[in-house]
Design a protein around this nucleic acid. Sequence first.
DNA 1: AAAAACCTTTGATAAATATCAAAAAATCAG
DNA 2: CTGATTTTTTGATATTTATCAAAGGTTTTT
Lengths: 201, 201
Amino acid sequence: MLTFTSVLVLNMLESLHSYLGNFVQLTDADIQMINKIFVYRKIKKNELIAEDGKVCNRLLFVNNGYVRFFHFDDNGTEITSDFYFAPTFVTTYTSFLTGLPSHVNVQAMCNMEALELSKNDLNELYEKYPKFERVGRLIAESVAIHSEEHLFMLLNQPAGVRYRKLLEKYPLYINTIPLQYIASYLGITQETLSRIRKSKA
Amino acid sequence: MLTFTSVLVLNMLESLHSYLGNFVQLTDADIQMINKIFVYRKIKKNELIAEDGKVCNRLLFVNNGYVRFFHFDDNGTEITSDFYFAPTFVTTYTSFLTGLPSHVNVQAMCNMEALELSKNDLNELYEKYPKFERVGRLIAESVAIHSEEHLFMLLNQPAGVRYRKLLEKYPLYINTIPLQYIASYLGITQETLSRIRKSKA
DNA sequence: AAAAACCTTTGATAAATATCAAAAAATCAG
DNA sequence: CTGATTTTTTGATATTTATCAAAGGTTTTT
């Protein structure tokens, strides 16, 4: 008998297979194994997936919505440093990889569904299925490219230009993300972003 | 008979082995193979290792000195976006990985020695020696972490704070790198950086 | 539907940083 | 060593952006 939840899980798993399929070809055995080690999770809007000060040992595959990375600077001002949009893997990269406490919080911006893998299970996966080293490498590479793009946007362009480039890059999302979060991602205050938006209207 | 050059090459290779040894344990066979596929190169100060507009198909291991990444913004102003310090691998990451033309130039800041690997040889390496997928993954991960750190430094801190953090992080190098290059890395003009330096003296 | 909480805009002013031009200092090449 | 080139500093001013405070909007909760 298929319960309602199990249908959701199957959908999620299919989505994960298809995502991984972008990186390597999956055999039936691979798929069996994936289905076994990932755990289905529901995540509520605003829930913290990872927290500043804690070591992050989880890797999540999220299928819908998006997450926000943020921290507080020396003055206690909240800074949004990143967004990741589904379908994607999410973790506090630096903490997950180094085993050191995270400097950032990761927050679900919508009610989301996810498949979770622990760091231990991932490492076992790497040992037993070398194919997944490649997946890990390709994903790490895409994370590196993602960061570099954000970096390039911040360097030496006036705030208005940065905002327009962001709009071009994520046309679907930028108008739905609260402005205050986008502002610090662009390295400006929300008041300045509000004025920039107005001036282009 | 050992020529002068061959001694240099042997030193470079040893340095490469030791660098790779941080990521995986190398067997004698691995070492033989590495010695065969990497090519020794001399690079002159100011030489461009990779160029804006061209696809970058080279991966270099450099053993001494450092390189600078730069490009020109919409106003024609030169922007330094990154530094990598030896010992390290160097490539225009995004172009090397995607096969698209690079948006940046990579410039040797000193006379340097390097060991070069082509993209084709690297891909063969990945196919034949899955162990190196792990090396690739770990290096990609460290690149991602490196970018993220630069990003964090730029976000929402006054320029003086950014400069001091940079000094703390690279105490050996910052005072030897021309100020004009550091300025744009920090997202400010050289005049502003000059004044910041003066105010801390 | 009203209250509460949250998010965005507006205005006045202050602070940080950029720009432009030129002088001083350091480095390089012959 | 010395003139040429490059890099850094300085000064005056303009521009951009931040800050603070308050008012409008929106959304969520009860």
